[in-house]
């Protein structure tokens, strides 16, 4: 924890080491090149957003980072080690929360799944479950089954389970894509404050340009067919971000324009 904080504060160290690194990554699936020659470095504690037109390989890139896919050529590494399989300290928040939760377990039971696998003693679990559910704003829903919860609540629950893994990195695949606008904005702020506490590195895939700018330290845009990096923007907006003032910031509007033009050009 301290080492990450330290790196964040010293720019020289930050330059040296990246947490997630893609180096000349190409991925062919079913005879088609999905990702071509992507090189990307994500620093510890960085919040990177990936955007792009549909079919540009955003989700595929995330799955490569997760170790769910292996590159055809090039390599993906985490903390300097090659990513050959999913790691327990890299948590994945799937878009389809309904499929990623165990419907036969209550909210508490779903969080417990992660605690069981990391080998936390049974006696310590209830307190940790309470803490995690409180963190994601579900303190009174521990006994509910996923089917009894709204989409927003289910996604919070999935995030709680991911936090139970105590991840160094959180990979989020359009996590709020299926939610309504109000729920979405609420969850964006909650994710930001959660990450403020945990200091985890984030790769966040979204098709919502404003969401990407609002959340990220950096936004990478992919070009489609095959997927490759087309734009890489640093987001210099002050934190903490605010749904009203940040979105009215002239820099926000300029970035939005730039990304909008990028998407438009990539689709043409």
């Amino acid at each position: 924890m301290t080492s990450i904080a330290l790196r964040k504060d010293t720019p020289s160290a930050q330059l040296e080491k990246s947490q997630i690194a893609f180096s000349h990554v190409t991925l062919d699936l079913g005879g088609k090149t999905i990702i071509e020659n992507v090189s990307l470095d994500v620093k510890p504690g960085e919040f990177l957003c990936i955007i792009g037109a549909s079919g540009c390989g955003k989700t595929t890139a995330l799955r490569l980072a997760a170790g769910l896919y292996q590159p055809t050529s090039g390599n993906v590494s985490f903390d300097g080690e090659p990513m050959r399989a999913p790691r327990r300290d890299v948590a994945i928040v799937f878009q389809d929360y309904g499929k990623a939760l165990l419907p036969w377990r209550t909210a508490a039971g779903n969080v417990a799944l992660a605690l069981e696998t990391i080998g936390m003693p049974k006696a310590q679990r209830p307190a940790r479950i309470d803490e995690l559910l409180k963190k994601v704003g579900l303190p009174h829903h521990a006994a509910k089954y996923p089917a009894e919860m709204s989409g927003g609540m289910q996604q919070r629950l999935q995030i709680a389970r991911c936090l139970a893994q105590e991840p160094k990195a959180l990979l989020m695949d359009e996590p709020f894509g299926a939610l309504d606008a109000m729920t979405r904005q609420g969850l964006q702020d909650e994710v930001l404050s959660l990450l403020d506490a945990s200091k985890a590195t984030v790769i966040f895939v979204t098709h919502d340009l404003e969401e990407a700018i609002y959340l990220g330290d950096r936004v990478v845009g992919l070009l489609p067919h095959p997927g490759r990096i087309g734009i890489d923007l640093k987001i210099n907006l002050p934190r903490p971000r605010d749904q009203l003032t940040t979105r009215e910031n002239p820099e926000f509007l300029r970035l939005r324009r730039e990304l909008f033009d990028f998407i438009k050009a990539s689709e043409a």
Binding site: A66, R87, R88, I92, F94, D96, K99, L113, A114
Partner: peptide, 21 residues
């Protein structure tokens, strides 16, 4: 649901745990 197997992979669940849980 294949997604659940991916969750299991990311948690490094044992084969036995995947079957029973």
């Amino acid at each position: 649901e294949p997604r659940l197997y991916e969750v299991a992979r990311s948690l490094h669940m044992s084969r036995l745990a995947v079957i029973f849980k």
